[in-house]
Design a protein around this nucleic acid. Structure first.
Lengths: 230, 230
DNA sequence: CGGTTCGTTGAGGCCCATCAATCTATGTGG
DNA sequence: CCACATAGATTGATGGGCCTCAACGAACCG
């Protein structure tokens, strides 16, 4: 999507890579932020909270994601950003981001593209949280992540899944206890297996069926197109 | 946000106003769309569905909203758009929208601004659906709409609310039956009253308290700033 | 090796869904 | 202008999916 020149300009504009430990707030709800953070390695999440402390994650951030796109236009953040694993990020000051966008149409295009995809993903999450059972929700999330992480799909898919069950619950609108029980059901039904924070989807077709998952909404070209179902 | 010239360019690019009856699909899930629809009067919604027919509305569309912003970049829609009331819309072909954005920085800015605000609103809806009780959810939605519709706030707020209870349920991840009972509780507790599709929030402060609502996330300047709480 | 975080299990209860019936409002055609 | 049809609102009874609380086990780490 970016020309070589644009790629270059972007890399020049960006701060040196910064490493951050797990469970650290990059930004807190309500903070002012005039810098975009781009995840290059590891996992993070956006989070929102109710007055009484309940948490909902509106997004999981994996390598390639921008943590706070809206800082492009808004001073104040409506959510916090917190690391999940050890993570590497680069920072892009808003001024420079806007200047880049003004100068390079491909970069402007990329920003709006990112925003629109985020939007679509959030819509799907809403559908899950509002209308799907716990089993479907969890299955759908795992399917989505397998695609976003571009995990190889050869009938089985394996990928690192570093969330605690509590964090998974916060993403799906469930409690950690219920995540636990739901994960067990997924295992018992032979859909997944997991060991040391790695999930493997044992039968991708069956899993997607159980989740009601159709990868097209992610607008990502599948890694090996000839193998990707539907 | 737009210069007078840009305003003008936009109005010139747009199709004549079209009127549409209630409960009509403008676009269906999965349809191709190369035209943006902008609501100028009346209500509509975006909707998504699961395989087994459950519905979730990721957005309510009121005057000023763009129904399908992502058609700016994507051919295929991941949701349907359906009218709720009689409605008036104008159409803006993608080509012209992109050309306008390329030529007028204010218009480009407006598009990304709209996308980012949508994003934030969706995050709040996710928080509601995932973590709030039915009462809080409904109260929060009504508070949000009162602000988005720019209803006058003089301690009380009245505005037309044309959703059926089924549609409200689809927006909030609840059933119509439960919307009914929850609405009754809001009335009994003196927070709202309603007659012939008009809602009035009787005590705005108490209502916002009950909803956990803070209007800042909408990034709209309040109509009479001196009266806006918080 | 003790401490802390995370995962697992059980018992009990509540919020909201489901199903179904009835009531009300709106609109339509005769 | 009324009879009727239909969509939407309301009510009741019942049940289930998920929450809550609490305890215990397992893994990790300094």
């Amino acid at each position: 999507m970016l020309s070589r020149e644009e790629q270059r300009a972007l890399e020049d504009a960006v701060s040196p890579v910064r490493s951050i430990a797990p469970n650290i707030d990059l930004v807190r709800e309500g903070d002012r932020a005039d810098t975009l953070f781009i995840v290059t390695e590891g996992w993070a999440c956006r989070y929102t909270t109710t007055r009484d402390g309940a948490r909902q994650l509106p997004a999981l951030l994996v390598p390639g994601d921008v943590a706070n796109l809206d800082s492009l236009m808004f001073d104040q953040l409506d959510y916090g950003v917190r690391t999940i694993t050890h993570i590497k990020i680069v920072a892009l000051p808003r001024d420079r981001a806007l200047a880049l966008a003004a100068q390079h149409p491909g970069i402007a295009r990329t920003f709006t593209w990112l925003g629109l995809v985020e939007n679509i993903i959030q819509s799907k999450w809403m559908l899950s949280i509002g209308r799907r059972s716990a089993l479907e929700r969890l299955a759908h999330l795992l399917c989505e992540l397998s695609v976003r992480l571009r995990a190889a799909n050869d009938g089985q898919i394996s990928f690192a899944f570093p969330l605690t069950q509590e964090q998974a619950g916060d993403a799906l609108g469930l409690t950690s206890v219920h995540i636990n029980r739901t994960m067990q059901r997924l295992r018992i039904e032979g859909l997944i297996s997991s060991a040391s924070r790695t999930i493997t989807i044992r039968d991708v077709a069956k899993m997607r069926q159980a989740a009601g998952f159709d990868p097209r909404y992610l607008h990502i070209a599948p890694r090996n197109a000839q193998l990707a179902p539907v």
